[in-house]
Amino acid sequence: MFELSTEGKEFVKKELARYETIESAIIPALYRVQKENEGWVSEDAIGHLSELMNIPEARINEVFHFYTMFNKKPVGKYHVQVCCNVACAMAGTREIADAFMKEHDVKEGEMTSDGRFTFTRVECLGSCDTAPMMQINDDYHENLTPESAQQLLKDLK
């Protein structure tokens, strides 16, 4: 059973008091779970949050399933999100994403067998002047080339 750390619970309690309604704390609480649970939110975490926040599971699930940044299944240590919207697609990101998945022999959204990577094609990340670009966990990596993108993954510990 997933349970937030003591600090995590404290964080959620503060968030519950931070906004005008307690429901506004659902998104921050889900982010916290994701941070403490290796990058994804499990079903049992929803029950835990429901109890902790005194909000019905259905209400939390509604938010959880609507937003794409909450991962519904385990992701690799490095979540590699390659922007494939217009400017980046023009600059060759679709080929970069395909090459990643081919080299690591995974489909989109699947985790590599060593648990290191999950690759996703995502929509515009608002860094089109530095296309082609991708986001690995929280960080943007810009002005890529097919070679520099491959090297970047190799250099990750």
Partner: peptide
């Protein structure tokens, strides 16, 4: 003044979608 962070939904850029999201609902 406070910050509220969305979670990946283009529709929350629509003002009433944004309000729904800030209220802790689907955007």
């Amino acid at each position: 003044m406070d910050v509220y962070v969305g979670a990946g939904a283009y529709i929350c850029g629509e003002e009433t979608g944004m309000i729904s999201s800030l209220e802790g609902k689907k955007g």
